[in-house]
Simulated scan of single mutants.
Amino acid sequence: MTRRQPTLAVQVRDRIRALIVEQGLRAGDRLPSENELIALFDVGRTSIREALKLLEQEGLIQARHGDGRYLTSQPSLDRPLTRLEGVTEMLASRGHTADNTVLDVAAAEPSRHQRELLQLPPGETVVRLERLRRHRDDALLYSIDLFPRSLVGRPLDEVDWTGSLFGLLTEYGHDIAYAVAQVRAVTLGEAQAGRIGGADADGAWLLLTQTHHDSAGRPLLYSQDYHRGTDFSFHLVRRRD
């Protein structure tokens, strides 16, 4: 089935949201004018106005008669929970050019729980990858990934761990097809807060815990992604049978 492409107005809305983040606009700041947005995105006035109307309906901006439109709150990264995507792809889709800092990467002995989740044979170790994504100076996402050491047949210090982990595993012939996920709100522990540092560690975070599988059902990756609650939200569609 061919996936329907979002309308032009929705595409422009998402580009405006990304522009707000890129320019570091805060609540109370004035958005670029319609003419500036038309020139910037090379689209017609109707599409710009429809996109701005969508942002008004979301409560992100407010129109002031004769004085333009102003930001009322910070845009969040809202993603469908049913869509499986890596963190790098998710941030890029919203126009975020996040700095990806590798805090630690090492081969480690898995716990009994991790061994069972990844269905590891006796003696198999895991790679434990710990990373932090920042946009400008703000911490957006702290992640811990574990996968069988045998999936990447190179010395760990020869691998670039700053890019997409999904993409890296695909390079080695391991395609992730689906994941079993759980999301819940948490506050960071002392050790986790210390890894992030500063006021960024305060408040609620959304912990997305996932076990990723290939098309044959083999577990390839266990991940714990801590999303800053003020910047991320997830949605899903619920139906009655």
Rank of each mutant, 00 (worst) to 15 (best):
M1A: 13
T2L: 13
L8Y: 01
V10K: 02
V10T: 07
V10I: 08
I16Y: 02
R17S: 07
L19D: 02
L19Y: 08
I20Q: 02
E22G: 11
Q23E: 12
L25C: 03
R26T: 11
A27F: 10
D29M: 15
R30N: 05
S33Q: 15
E34N: 13
N35Y: 11
E36G: 09
L37S: 01
L37G: 00
I38A: 07
A39L: 10
L40W: 11
V43M: 00
G44Q: 05
T46M: 07
I48L: 06
R49K: 11
A51S: 07
L54S: 06
L55G: 04
E56T: 04
Q57A: 07
H65T: 14
G66M: 12
G66W: 14
D67R: 15
Y70C: 07
T72D: 00
P75A: 05
D78L: 11
L81M: 12
V87D: 01
T88W: 13
L91E: 08
L91Q: 12
R94A: 11
H96D: 08
V102A: 06
V102K: 08
A107S: 15
A107H: 15
A107L: 11
P110S: 05
S111P: 09
R112H: 13
Q114S: 06
E116D: 13
E124C: 13
V127M: 04
V127E: 02
R128C: 06
R131A: 02
R134L: 09
R136G: 08
D138F: 05
D138T: 15
L140M: 10
L141W: 01
D145H: 10
L146T: 01
F147K: 04
F147T: 00
F147Y: 07
V152R: 00
R154E: 07
P155H: 01
E158Q: 15
T162R: 08
T162A: 04
L165E: 03
F166T: 04
F166P: 01
E171S: 12
E171V: 09
I176R: 03
V180H: 09
V180L: 11
A181W: 08
A181D: 09
Q182K: 14
R184W: 07
A185N: 11
V186T: 10
G189M: 06
A191Q: 12
R195F: 06
G198I: 06
D202L: 13
G203Q: 03
A204V: 15
W205P: 02
L207N: 02
L208H: 00
L208V: 07
L208D: 01
T209V: 10
T211H: 03
R218T: 10
P219D: 00
D225G: 03
Y226M: 04
Y226E: 04
H227A: 08
H227I: 06
G229T: 05
G229L: 05
G229Q: 06
F232T: 01
L236M: 14
R240S: 11
D241V: 11
D241H: 09
D241M: 05
